[in-house]
Amino acid sequence: MRGLTGKYLLKRFGMFVLTIWLGMTIIFIIPRLAVGDPTSALLGRLMSKGGNVENSAELIARWKDRFGLDQPLHIQYVRYLYNTITFNQGYSLSAFPATVDDLIQRTLPWTIGLLVVATLISFVLGNAIGALMAWRGTPRPVKSLLPFSLVFTSIPAFMLGILLIWVFSLTLNLLPYAGGFDRKVSPGWNPEFILNVARHAILPALAVVLVRMGSWALGMRGMMITADGEDYMVMAQAKGLSSGRRFWKYGVRNAILPQVTALGVAIGSIAGGFIIVEQIFSYPGIGSQLFRAIQDNDYTLLQGIVFYIIVGVAIAVLILDLTYPLIDPRISLKKN
């Protein structure tokens, strides 16, 4: 690859580590600035369930000791850094016997499966719609219908989610509206389970796709119009190239470049971006988990999830940076 040297890789990897470290430090500080503390929150929940809790002061002290919350902040910080990078983030404060890594492992695949796929679908569809909207060779009927595919863009994803549930689950009774799969099927790599999971994923995925598609389409439409005004498009026409080749190799190929940059960021920020969608559909993903962690002041779980989000974004950006010269020859990794 053009200009990819060991020195560059090392530098870029250094940036990657620095990004993650800064992110980790921020997520260590922020929850501790918030009002309330996790042990009293836990106690409050216990009290609301079981009435009076005896020896509550002692309980709090034991908990604090157990989770290291009685230590000075810098000790907590060093422990936190060490535990995080060794993937041993300890127990969740709110779901005590479960560990943070357990909880994340249980929910992360669902989110990746649903949202990464939905984001990719919205990217492909949105860009196709946008490119065709801007292309002069698009047949007139298609062109007049395309804008209708974008009417849902202005609705927030969760509102659209409610609408979809009402139409497809409650009224038409076609698709399930909650959870990741039915209790009656046994999880595993069997066709019945996979089909069941897919059926559950349709509505939340649709909500994400319909909402996200619009911004891809509008961005692509603008880029495509810009590309169409370039001299090389006139040349392509003068050369008597087929409409298809001009559309793909001259139009889309140039217009898509900034969209790919945006895709990297969009994939990275998936988990945080669709918390409410996951909530609406009671989806067992990391968004719901994050929502609960915030509600419960669950520092450890919160840190764990946000850590994964930060790593996700950093990896996405790293991959994007390293592969960008492949899609745009003008970008070189070499410093001139």
Partner: peptide, 23 residues
Amino acid sequence: QAVRWRDVALIPQGAMNSLNPVM
């Protein structure tokens, strides 16, 4: 499309932008 370039070709005004930057 068939006549283009085969019979009548163009040397453009702005050669700077007349070539596709990604090809």
